[in-house]
């Protein structure tokens, strides 16, 4: 059984007067995919962004509650936020590679954190990251090409490689396939399953089939509440809460 990597305890988020997330508690297990589903505006992305404190960039956001990463509260003001984000990486909704070469994109994190002593080590990290993102075969002969010249699906996998290159413990994915076509989506989903062998993955998705395909555990959010969290199979086949039932049945959302 996989161990618990992150633990959220009664997390509340306010955007100004708006109470966006109401007392959410959940566990994130390592080597496991946790999916967050729910209609738009239900707070699932907000919660995801709490896990690596990306909400800090929003001035009016206030966060209350405890989130433990290996027993350490990440909302502690003494915490080094850059260290947190090294340990909890993030892949965004829209592929957002830097306007640099493919190599520089992947090497950015390792360079930033001094993870490679020399060029050989860096090359090694870049190759490994690209390989684990399933991109190495496609780009090994044009690492110096502009990253923005890749297709959307390749760009998103590059972003995943970039995140993996920093060796995080947890990878957060905010609707990583919403800007991709079905074929690229399939590739990324296979990649997620592959990555789940090593990392704890939390994925926000609008696509219920996707949650069923990739996630071991699924949490359903509605209007800022986490309504139900259970094994994915149970959520879709035997939901306990009527709201969950309606949502997975397609009655709303």
């Amino acid at each position: 059984m996989s161990e618990i990597r992150m633990q959220a305890d009664d997390v509340n988020v306010f955007y100004g007067e708006n109470h966006a997330l109401k007392g959410v508690s959940m566990e994130v297990k390592s080597r496991h995919v946790t999916a967050l589903i729910g209609p738009s505006g239900c707070g699932k992305s907000t919660f995801l962004r709490c896990l690596n404190r990306m909400n800090d960039t929003i001035e009016i956001a206030r966060i209350k509650g405890k989130i433990l990463l290996d027993g350490e509260n990440i909302n502690d003001s003494a915490l080094d936020i850059t260290l947190l984000r090294q340990r909890v990486g993030m892949v965004f909704q829209k592929p957002n590679p830097f306007p640099k070469s493919i190599y520089d994109n992947v090497a950015y994190g390792p360079r930033l954190h001094g993870m490679a002593k020399n060029r050989e080590e860096l090359d090694e990290i870049v190759e490994q990251a690209l390989t684990s993102a399933g991109l190495w075969e496609e780009v090994y002969d044009r690492l110096e090409a502009e990253a923005l010249g890749l297709s959307g699906g390749q760009q998103q996998r590059l972003c995943i490689a970039r995140t993996v290159a920093v060796s995080p413990e947890v990878i957060l994915m905010d609707e990583p396939c919403s800007a991709l076509d079905p074929i690229a989506t399939g590739t990324v989903e296979r990649l997620i399953l592959e990555l789940a062998k090593d990392y704890a993955i939390v994925i926000v998705t609008h696509n219920m089939q996707q949650a069923q395909r990739v996630a071991g555990t699924t949490a359903f959010f509605h209007l800022g509440d986490m309504v139900e969290m259970a094994a994915t199979k149970d959520i879709f086949e035997n939901p306990q809460d009527p709201r969950t039932k309606d949502y997975v049945a397609g009655a709303f959302g």
């Binding site: 990306m54 090294q86 994190g109 920093v166």
Partner: peptide
């Protein structure tokens, strides 16, 4: 400048200042 550059850098553990000056 698209905010996604800054977000990407922050997400990888760059400090705010690093993300501004490097991206």
């Amino acid at each position: 400048v698209p905010p996604s550059y800054e977000e990407a850098a922050l997400g990888m553990g760059a400090s705010h200042q690093q993300s501004v000056f490097q991206h």
